[in-house]
């Protein structure tokens, strides 16, 4: 059921119940256009998990999707607080105390950073952002190309600050500064890493201790392809991998 919850009822979420839920799974979305592009796969994942007896909550951070506020006010700390609120909502709705999170791109980084505050028992991460500074540089470059893309605009948009937005979303100065400090630091809560990113070093190589399980999807996901920025993400194998992971009884 769709609902607003949390302080000021500012967070939008969609809860999918199970009769006697085996596990509670919180789906943490990525940010910006990656969130809109991955909506379909989040819906498919939520359905697949609910059909297998798991209670699932999808939600939007404040300033994104259907949640309250404008995107310019988004901050990393607010996203962490939203994960905590969403986990509490999921506990309340499902009656389960143990919550596992699934996150994509920055959603994976946010979930991993929120493990302690949201008391998550596990994290499944899909293509986390390894280096926030590099991510910002990539998004800025994408935006700079977009502004002069004459297949999109009749005339190049030199009237727009290329650093003010990333493909349709204005991150704001605070979030930009915070993202510059983001590094992928997988902790012991990481239970599955799904790697389909073609252009960055594989996430498993960037850490000292490999996570318990890493699944490499050879067909790359086009996160940074300018021509694909309005295409739905259809990563074959991700839904199956995550549902199988939970069916095996892993956190």
């Amino acid at each position: 059921m769709p609902r607003y919850f949390g302080p000021r009822r500012a967070l939008f979420g969609l809860y999918q119940a199970a009769a006697a839920p085996r596990r509670a799974v919180l789906l943490c979305p990525p940010l910006g256009q990656e969130m809109i592009r991955s909506h379909r796969i989040y819906r498919l994942l939520a359905q697949a998990l609910a059909e297998r007896g798991h209670a699932v909550l999808r939600f939007d951070y404040r300033g994104t999707g259907d949640s309250a506020d404008a995107g310019e006010g988004l901050s990393w700390n607010a996203c962490l607080a939203d994960v905590r609120e969403a986990a509490a909502e999921l506990r309340s709705a499902s009656g389960l105390d143990a919550v596992t999170a699934f996150g994509t791109r920055l959603g994976a980084n946010i979930a991993m950073d929120a493990v302690d505050t949201a008391q998550l028992v596990g994290v499944v991460a899909w293509d986390p952002v390894l280096d926030g500074g590099q991510f910002l540089a990539t998004m800025d470059a994408l935006q700079a190309h977009l502004l002069v893309d004459t297949s999109r605009f009749l005339r190049p948009r030199r009237d727009v600050d290329p650093h003010a937005e990333w493909v349709g979303f204005a991150p704001g100065d605070r979030l930009r500064a915070q993202l510059g400090d983001v590094r992928w630091r997988p902790g012991s809560a990481l239970s599955l890493l799904i790697d389909s990113a073609p252009r960055e070093p594989r996430a498993g190589h960037a850490i000292q201790q490999p996570p318990p399980r890493t699944l490499r999807i050879e067909r790359p996901t086009s996160w940074h392809d300018l021509d694909a920025q309005e295409d739905v993400i259809l990563a074959h194998g991700v839904v199956e991998a995550v549902t199988a992971h939970f069916q095996e009884g892993r956190a």
């Binding site: 909506h39 994104t64 999707g65 259907d66 995107g71 349709g168 739905v232």
Partner: peptide, 12 residues
């Protein structure tokens, strides 16, 4: 095919 928030959250 964009969900109800609209392209780049235009509808919101």
């Amino acid at each position: 095919l964009v969900q109800r928030v609209g392209p780049f959250r235009l509808h919101v």
